[in-house]
């Protein structure tokens, strides 16, 4: 896959804290991101997601009493959008406890960025999410990016012995 240029990116920010959303907007704007849409509610974010082409989504975990995770699950399983269900989703959260991280991973987030975030972290996570996509898994229990980041070659698991292969839709 060719590397996506930052000026061509279209990013959706969903955060009920407009101050943080605006800060993230300013950071992305300073990077030169082509189009940035900010939504204060999940309803608005959902509408934008279904009606606009989006390359990456930043969403806050705590939004509307933790409904941010439901929003992510909806994106991962719904086919009626202009966007592919494997759109990179970056969860920005002030909560980095184990429980939150596991819930986010199981909901299908691509990257997690903890608040406070710095421009360096935002750039690194964005680049990783957009230009270093992991295989997309669609099975009954889980829809989202492969939880394994490393692409190890384990000879015993290669070829027909690799049961994971049947669940992987290769997006490259």
């Amino acid at each position: 896959m060719d590397k996506i240029e930052i000026k061509d990116l279209k990013i959706l920010i969903a955060d009920s804290n407009l101050f943080i959303a605006r800060t993230l907007f300013s950071i992305l704007e300073a990077f030169g991101v082509g189009k940035i849409i900010v939504c204060e509610t999940l309803e608005e974010a959902e509408k934008q997601y279904y009606n606009s082409e989006i390359d990456c989504i930043f969403v806050d975990f705590m939004m509307e009493d933790r409904s941010g995770l439901e929003f992510i699950k909806k994106i991962r399983t719904n086919r009626s959008s202009k966007n592919s269900p494997d759109v990179p989703i970056i969860l920005d959260t002030g909560m980095t406890d184990r429980k939150t991280i596991i819930m986010a991973r199981d909901a299908g987030v691509t990257e997690i960025i903890s608040k406070p975030f710095s421009p360096e972290q935002v750039l690194q996570k964005l680049d990783n999410a957009v230009n270093n996509k992991r295989d997309f898994i669609e099975v009954e229990e889980f829809v989202g990016p492969n939880r394994r980041r490393r692409k190890d070659s384990i000879s015993d698991w290669d070829g027909e012995k690799d049961r994971r292969r049947s669940a992987v839709k290769n997006n490259k």
Binding site: F19, T23, S26, I27, A30, F31, P119, L123
Partner: peptide, 23 residues
Amino acid sequence: QRDEMIARANVAVQGAAIEFVST
């Protein structure tokens, strides 16, 4: 190019920090 992007973003964050303090 990356360093320039980050420098521009840091300036933007400083502006937001001033606004934060005022509120």
